[in-house]
Amino acid sequence: MLSRQLALPRLAVRSIQTSAAANSGHHIEHWWGPEKAAGRELVGFGSNGDNTYQDRIDYWYPAIRFRKEDDVSRPLREKEKGDWKNLSLEDKKILYRYSFRQTLSEFEAPRGYWKPITAGVMAIISLATFYAIFLHVYVYPPLPPTFQNEYKEAVIDKMLTLEKGQFLGPAAHFDYEKKQWK
Protein backbone atom coordinates (compact mmCIF):
# COMPACT_ATOMS: atom_id res chain seq x y z
CA MET A 1 0.00 0.00 0.00
CA LEU A 2 1.38 3.40 -0.96
CA SER A 3 1.82 6.18 1.51
CA ARG A 4 -0.96 8.76 1.61
CA GLN A 5 1.48 11.54 0.72
CA LEU A 6 2.63 9.90 -2.51
CA ALA A 7 -0.56 11.01 -4.20
CA LEU A 8 0.32 14.67 -3.62
CA PRO A 9 4.11 14.87 -3.24
CA ARG A 10 4.18 18.67 -3.09
CA LEU A 11 2.16 18.52 0.13
CA ALA A 12 4.59 15.98 1.53
CA VAL A 13 7.58 18.31 1.56
CA ARG A 14 8.77 19.74 4.82
CA SER A 15 12.04 21.40 4.08
CA ILE A 16 14.79 23.33 5.75
CA GLN A 17 16.14 25.81 3.24
CA THR A 18 19.83 26.59 3.39
CA SER A 19 20.39 28.50 0.18
CA ALA A 20 17.77 31.27 0.26
CA ALA A 21 17.35 34.07 2.77
CA ALA A 22 14.20 34.44 4.86
CA ASN A 23 13.85 38.19 5.13
CA SER A 24 10.07 38.24 4.76
CA GLY A 25 9.52 38.71 8.50
CA HIS A 26 7.35 35.59 8.74
CA HIS A 27 8.32 32.80 11.08
CA ILE A 28 9.22 29.69 9.10
CA GLU A 29 9.43 26.74 11.45
CA HIS A 30 12.31 24.77 9.91
CA TRP A 31 14.29 27.29 7.92
CA TRP A 32 18.05 27.27 8.22
CA GLY A 33 20.09 29.98 6.60
CA PRO A 34 23.47 29.29 4.97
CA GLU A 35 25.22 30.14 8.23
CA LYS A 36 23.47 27.27 10.02
CA ALA A 37 24.24 24.84 7.18
CA ALA A 38 27.94 25.47 7.65
CA GLY A 39 29.62 22.49 9.24
CA ARG A 40 27.05 19.98 8.04
CA GLU A 41 28.32 17.25 5.80
CA LEU A 42 27.23 17.40 2.17
CA VAL A 43 26.13 13.83 1.45
CA GLY A 44 24.43 14.04 -1.93
CA PHE A 45 22.85 16.00 -4.71
CA GLY A 46 19.47 16.37 -3.03
CA SER A 47 16.17 16.60 -4.88
CA ASN A 48 17.10 19.60 -7.02
CA GLY A 49 20.82 20.19 -6.50
CA ASP A 50 20.82 22.92 -3.87
CA ASN A 51 22.10 22.49 -0.34
CA THR A 52 18.82 22.02 1.48
CA TYR A 53 17.68 19.60 4.09
CA GLN A 54 14.26 18.22 3.20
CA ASP A 55 12.16 15.47 4.75
CA ARG A 56 10.31 14.22 1.70
CA ILE A 57 8.29 11.09 1.12
CA ASP A 58 9.00 11.01 -2.61
CA TYR A 59 12.76 11.76 -2.35
CA TRP A 60 14.21 10.23 0.78
CA TYR A 61 17.78 11.44 0.65
CA PRO A 62 18.56 15.04 1.65
CA ALA A 63 21.61 16.90 0.35
CA ILE A 64 23.07 17.59 3.79
CA ARG A 65 22.95 15.90 7.17
CA PHE A 66 20.41 17.16 9.69
CA ARG A 67 22.94 17.92 12.46
CA LYS A 68 26.53 19.08 12.61
CA GLU A 69 29.16 16.57 13.55
CA ASP A 70 30.14 16.84 17.22
CA ASP A 71 31.97 14.84 19.89
CA VAL A 72 29.15 12.28 20.13
CA SER A 73 28.84 11.55 16.43
CA ARG A 74 32.57 11.62 15.47
CA PRO A 75 33.49 8.27 17.06
CA LEU A 76 30.26 6.74 15.78
CA ARG A 77 31.07 7.89 12.24
CA GLU A 78 34.46 6.17 12.47
CA LYS A 79 32.80 3.05 13.87
CA GLU A 80 30.20 3.24 11.07
CA LYS A 81 32.90 2.86 8.42
CA GLY A 82 33.66 -0.62 9.73
CA ASP A 83 31.35 -3.59 10.20
CA TRP A 84 27.81 -2.57 11.13
CA LYS A 85 27.44 -5.65 13.31
CA ASN A 86 29.73 -3.92 15.80
CA LEU A 87 27.23 -1.06 16.19
CA SER A 88 24.61 -1.35 18.89
CA LEU A 89 20.97 -0.45 18.29
CA GLU A 90 21.44 2.81 20.22
CA ASP A 91 24.45 3.72 18.07
CA LYS A 92 22.38 3.17 14.92
CA LYS A 93 19.57 5.33 16.29
CA ILE A 94 21.99 8.13 17.14
CA LEU A 95 23.53 7.96 13.67
CA TYR A 96 20.07 8.05 12.11
CA ARG A 97 19.07 11.12 14.14
CA TYR A 98 22.23 12.93 13.06
CA SER A 99 21.37 12.31 9.40
CA PHE A 100 17.57 12.72 9.45
CA ARG A 101 15.18 14.92 11.38
CA GLN A 102 12.35 12.39 11.70
CA THR A 103 11.44 8.83 10.86
CA LEU A 104 8.89 7.85 8.22
CA SER A 105 6.24 7.09 10.84
CA GLU A 106 6.86 10.47 12.52
CA PHE A 107 6.66 12.18 9.13
CA GLU A 108 3.33 10.55 8.24
CA ALA A 109 1.77 11.04 11.67
CA PRO A 110 -1.20 13.42 11.75
CA ARG A 111 -0.27 16.88 12.98
CA GLY A 112 -3.58 17.89 14.52
CA TYR A 113 -3.80 21.17 12.59
CA TRP A 114 -7.54 20.59 12.12
CA LYS A 115 -8.21 21.34 15.80
CA PRO A 116 -7.25 25.04 15.88
CA ILE A 117 -8.75 25.55 12.41
CA THR A 118 -12.06 24.06 13.56
CA ALA A 119 -11.94 26.14 16.74
CA GLY A 120 -11.37 29.30 14.70
CA VAL A 121 -14.23 28.53 12.32
CA MET A 122 -16.58 27.81 15.23
CA ALA A 123 -15.53 31.04 16.96
CA ILE A 124 -16.24 33.05 13.81
CA ILE A 125 -19.64 31.36 13.36
CA SER A 126 -20.58 32.03 17.00
CA LEU A 127 -19.51 35.69 16.75
CA ALA A 128 -21.56 36.10 13.57
CA THR A 129 -24.57 34.50 15.29
CA PHE A 130 -24.29 36.77 18.33
CA TYR A 131 -23.93 39.79 16.04
CA ALA A 132 -27.07 38.80 14.11
CA ILE A 133 -29.00 38.38 17.39
CA PHE A 134 -27.74 41.77 18.59
CA LEU A 135 -28.90 43.40 15.36
CA HIS A 136 -32.28 41.69 15.57
CA VAL A 137 -32.91 42.70 19.18
CA TYR A 138 -31.38 46.18 19.45
CA VAL A 139 -30.90 47.64 15.97
CA TYR A 140 -33.74 46.60 13.69
CA PRO A 141 -37.12 48.25 14.41
CA PRO A 142 -40.14 46.06 15.18
CA LEU A 143 -42.06 44.78 12.18
CA PRO A 144 -44.58 47.22 10.72
CA PRO A 145 -48.29 46.46 11.15
CA THR A 146 -48.56 45.52 7.48
CA PHE A 147 -46.77 42.24 8.28
CA GLN A 148 -49.51 41.09 10.68
CA ASN A 149 -52.03 38.49 9.44
CA GLU A 150 -55.07 40.55 10.45
CA TYR A 151 -53.89 43.44 8.30
CA LYS A 152 -53.24 41.16 5.31
CA GLU A 153 -56.73 39.66 5.61
CA ALA A 154 -58.29 43.12 5.83
CA VAL A 155 -56.42 44.22 2.68
CA ILE A 156 -57.65 41.17 0.76
CA ASP A 157 -61.25 41.79 1.93
CA LYS A 158 -60.99 45.40 0.76
CA MET A 159 -59.59 44.29 -2.63
CA LEU A 160 -62.45 41.81 -3.05
CA THR A 161 -65.01 44.48 -2.21
CA LEU A 162 -63.55 47.09 -4.53
CA GLU A 163 -62.78 44.75 -7.44
CA LYS A 164 -66.07 42.82 -7.52
CA GLY A 165 -66.78 41.49 -10.98
CA GLN A 166 -63.22 41.77 -12.32
CA PHE A 167 -61.72 38.78 -14.10
CA LEU A 168 -58.10 39.44 -13.01
CA GLY A 169 -56.41 39.42 -9.61
CA PRO A 170 -57.84 37.96 -6.41
CA ALA A 171 -61.42 38.77 -7.38
CA ALA A 172 -61.30 36.23 -10.20
CA HIS A 173 -60.62 33.41 -7.68
CA PHE A 174 -63.34 34.33 -5.16
CA ASP A 175 -66.97 33.16 -5.25
CA TYR A 176 -69.07 36.13 -4.09
CA GLU A 177 -72.29 34.10 -3.71
CA LYS A 178 -70.82 31.49 -1.36
CA LYS A 179 -68.35 33.94 0.22
CA GLN A 180 -65.39 31.58 -0.19
CA TRP A 181 -62.44 30.99 -2.48
CA LYS A 182 -63.01 28.92 -5.60
Rank of each mutant, 00 (worst) to 15 (best):
M122S: 15
D58H: 10
T118P: 03
V43L: 13
V13L: 12
K81S: 10
K85N: 10
K115L: 09
D175R: 02
Q180H: 08
Q166P: 06
T161G: 03
L76D: 00
T118K: 11
L89A: 04
I57N: 10
T146L: 12
T18M: 09
K36I: 08
P144A: 04
A132S: 10
A37F: 03
N86T: 12
L162K: 12
T52E: 05
P62G: 01
I124K: 14
P144V: 06
N149E: 14
V43A: 12
G46E: 00
R14D: 07
Q54W: 01
E106Q: 07
P75M: 00
K92D: 02
P62W: 02
Y61A: 08
E35D: 14
M122D: 15
S24H: 10
G120Y: 11
S47D: 15
E108T: 11
E78V: 12
W181D: 12
V121R: 11
L2W: 12
A22W: 01
Q5P: 05
Q148M: 14
L11R: 13
A172L: 02
S88D: 02
G82R: 08
G25R: 05
V155E: 15
M122N: 15
N23V: 05
R4E: 12
T18A: 06
I156W: 08
K152R: 15
G25S: 04
K68D: 03
T118D: 11
I156L: 15
Q54I: 05
W181Y: 14
